[in-house]
Amino acid sequence: MAGAAERTPTRTEAPLSETDRRLLDAYQRAFPLTPRPFAVIAEELGLTEAQVIERFRRLQARGYVSRIGPVFSPGRVGVSTLAALAVPADRLEAVAALVSSYPEVNHNYQRDHAFNLWFVVTAPEAARLDAVLREIEARVGLPVLDLPMERDYHIDLGFALWC
């Protein structure tokens, strides 16, 4: 989806039902690690297993759910860094597309600052990470700000839907 705007719901879509909110809220952590996780959730919410699966499918299709799966601790699985570029405004789209084209780049955002392009690079090993950064630098002709994480202070309990 390099360069593509991300899927956002339109105003005409129905607001979330109470059941959907619970599916989004209650299973961000402690998702059941049992052979039939959706049956466990169904039991807790008074639904059938098929209904839970169908609702998650719909929530994913509508873009509310990115995935059901692991969130890895940075620096524990593979290596990653936050990188930034100060890109002249008239080159931003082209440079952003080039950066996004790397499978190792998983986040790539424009932010309002002199450093206006911020991206996360993740690779199985440090040599590949460095190679990607050097290659981007060479191809765009701009110095990359490389800001690897030194310490993580946040305990990830998921996203509070009332924020």
Partner: peptide, 21 residues
């Protein structure tokens, strides 16, 4: 992997933007 801390959490990952944040 979770007990060892390699996985921070395991579950539903929501898209903040899609949800209106």
């Amino acid at each position: 992997l979770q007990a060892a801390g390699a996985i921070k959490r395991f579950g539903v990952v929501v898209n903040h933007r899609a949800l209106g944040f």
